[in-house]
Structure formats: structure tokens, C-alpha cells
Simulated scan of single mutants.
Amino acid sequence: MTAFLTIIIVLFIAIAIWQMVKIFDLAQVGTSNSQIADDKDNKLNGYLMIGFLVFIYVITIVSIVKWGDLPLLSNSASEHGPQIDNLMTISLVIIFIVQTITQFLLHYFAFKYKGEKGRKALFYADNNKLEAIWTIIPVITLAGLIIYGLFTWTSIMNVDEDADPLVVELYAQQFNWKARYAGQDNVLGMANVRLIDNDRANILGLDEADPNAQDDVITTELHLPVGKPVLFKMRSQDVLHSAYMPHFRAQMNCVPGMITQFAFTPTITTAEMRQNPDIVDKVKNINDIRTEKSKELVAGGEEALDPYEFDYLLLCNKICGKSHYNMQMKIIVETQEEYDAWIKEQATFKNTITAN
């Protein structure tokens, strides 16, 4: 497949160079090499335009048949996820319709009104009706999308404090994540990067004198109870990061010197998502590739790759340095009972500091 794509790219480059050379020759007016396009040239270019139009439609149909199921739009795991997916689907449908119509008109008109000897083009200085049509339609369409998007964004970002959301801090630093749970009081203690003291295991700079910080819990794995609203407070220690949780349709920048926030309610546990047919197929494809790769590694005297198992992930979606690609943290969505059992096993900030 790679070789085929390489050949196609090289072919397109060669065609582009050939066309550029022809344009250069045509531009040499008054020289012995000057050329004037005749009916044969115009007809050839007209048919080429139709041929390219057919190519566009064929490659589009093939892509839709082969990869058009858009599985990412069928496995959202948050309460607001379907709203985001619906907005994305509407946008894609509109783009597809507009692209199909405009590309057809562009290439068909280039063919239909190709230059012919003795035929003179009819020139319109302006056409108020046409200009009104192609101005009003995009304005209405875009206004509708923008208004719908604003209502969607507002509904997502308006956190219902009466729902008593679980408060969790996502702490970003090159190149890892830490999660800080607010403890029994559900209030995060004060923190500042200037208070970081690795010798005392105060890795996030919590204020040791703040009573709200004493029961905070710091972990390297994010556990969330299903069906429980979660309010994330986000900080960055060094550079601009972006907390991106694709399956929860959530993303928010982590900015040094300020606290940003995002909230959502997980709706599907990790165990349930692993049974999703799209995820099952994806995991199978990945493990088939890993199996083949493992054979090569074993033949070379190296260890085989472990089988892949699906997990939700927290990723960094900003290029934050050389190890940006590896900045991720596993997210486990589980039942309330499983979450309660896990959080009880975690050491509080007070116990961690006392032990050090």
C-alpha cells in the first residue's frame, strides 16, 4: 500500500512539473517558443477536467465504503458526547454536500465552456441575484452551525453545582500527568508550584497548612465512577499542555499560572466499552499487527510485544516537547462500589507527608 501511494505521489508531482513547464512556455509571448492554445488543447483540458472529477468521486466513494463508518462517532462515553457527535455529523454532511455540488459545477463548467474558435464568452459585470444567493445561503448555514455550536458548548460548560460533582485536579508537567482527588470534603487544597518539595513528597506544591489539602489524594492513574458528574480543575507546571480525553469528547488547555476547568459525566465503564463491537474490532486489528511485529522481534532476539487491551486515555494534545507523544495517563471508569474501594486504598496527602 505504501509503495502504491508513493507511485501515485510521484506521478502527480511529474504531472504538476509538466503542467508548470507548459504554463512557462505559454507565458513566453513574442518568442520563438510561444504557443497558443488551440481547440484541440482546450478539448483535451476539458476532458481532463471531467476525468479528474470522476477520479474525485470514485476515490470519495471508495473511501466512504472502506473507511466511512466513522467508528469514533459511535463510541462516546460521556453524557454530552452525543451532542458533540451530532454537531460533527451535521458539519460533515453539509461539507460533503457542498463539496460534491461545487466540485461538479467547477469541473463541468470548465468542460462545457472550454475555449472554441469563433465562440466569444458572455461577460457579466455583475449579477445581484446570483451574488445574493451565494452570500445568503452560506450566511444562514454558518449562522445555524455557530448558534447550534454555542448552545452545545454552553450546555457542556455550565456546571451544575447542585449535582455535587466529584472534584479532581489534572496536573500537567513535562511529560506526565498526575491526578489529585479532593478527598472526603470534596474541596481541593491550595497549591502553588513554588511549594513543590520533592524531599517531602510534596510533588504538586500543596499548601501543608491548608486543612482542605490534608485529605487530598494524589495518583498516577485516573479512576472515575460511572454516572457521577466530575469537575476537573487543570494546572500546568511548566508549558502549555492540553488535557484531551477523546472518548469523553473533552479537551481543555492546561495553562501555567492559571486554573482551567471542564466537567462531564462518564456513562460507560471501561469493562463495558471493551465489549463495544467497534472497540473489539480495533483491538483485534492492533493485536494482529503486534503479533506480526512480535515474530520479527523474536527472530531478532528481542522480546515479543504484549497483547493490547483497550483503556480510556488522558492525552496531551499540545506539542509540549520531545516526549509529547508519550504523555498519557490511563483512565478507568468503574462502578461506584469499585471506585469507593479503590479510593480507600490510596494514601492521603497528610499521610504521605507524615511518612516523609
Rank of each mutant, 00 (worst) to 15 (best):
N276R: 10
D39I: 07
D39W: 09
R290T: 03
I259F: 05
A243D: 09
Q184K: 15
F96V: 10
K43C: 04
L195M: 12
M1L: 10
G257E: 06
S76F: 08
I101H: 07
A16P: 00
N351G: 02
I56Y: 02
L224E: 04
I94G: 01
L122H: 14
T219D: 05
N287P: 07
V255G: 03
A263H: 01
G227E: 09
K120S: 12
Q328I: 12
P165E: 09
T219H: 03
A110C: 02
N186S: 03
N75Y: 13
T354V: 01
M273I: 03
A209Y: 06
W18K: 11
K344M: 08
Y57P: 00
I101P: 03
G46K: 02
M273E: 11
G227D: 02
P307K: 11
M1F: 09
L297D: 03
G189F: 03
L314H: 04
A172T: 07
Y339W: 06
A179W: 04
W153C: 05
C254P: 03
Q184D: 15
H223W: 12
I279P: 05
G81I: 03
M157C: 03
E79G: 06
N285K: 14
P277F: 14
E345A: 15
M20V: 09
S76A: 06
T291L: 14
S76T: 03
I56E: 00
